[in-house]
Design a protein around this nucleic acid. Sequence first.
DNA 1: GCGTCATGTCAAGCAGACTTTACATGACGC
DNA 2: GCGTCATGTAAAGTCTGCTTGACATGACGC
Lengths: 64, 64
Amino acid sequence: MNNHVRELRGDQGWSQADLAERLDVSRQTVNAIETGKYDPSLPLAFKIAALFGRPIESIFDPGA
Amino acid sequence: MNNHVRELRGDQGWSQADLAERLDVSRQTVNAIETGKYDPSLPLAFKIAALFGRPIESIFDPGA
DNA sequence: GCGTCATGTCAAGCAGACTTTACATGACGC
DNA sequence: GCGTCATGTAAAGTCTGCTTGACATGACGC
């Protein structure tokens, strides 16, 4: 599952640690999501979407 | 996390088993999601949204 | 009464999401 | 050269998502 978290985070000038703190998850979790190691849970996806003020569908792309 | 899966499924006249087959998951998984035992994964949430032709945000409600 | 269908639920197991701790690297300023 | 910051990655542990198989119930038609 592709996503645009890294770009959106960059637009805000945040480090992975900054974003992790705002999402209340670990820095490794943010890194894993950005590098595509695994997908976030649905609740975390909602948090991410809310933080960036965009719909989930515009951030995450199921691709196939 | 509240959701409207049961109503949407009812609108289509599908049983839990019918929906499970269309989503390619087990009947127990559909039942668990409808009864709020746990939330679907992000990929499964995308599948559900696509099947009903609605955005994820209109089906799942993070509540808090 | 009996068979069937839809739903609910349980148990055991595997895979995925997330944690903490820790170490390695490259870029930067001093 | 040295400290610091951002990022990547790894191991081990916990909890959640999802599986199969099975059993119980209530509603329905015959």
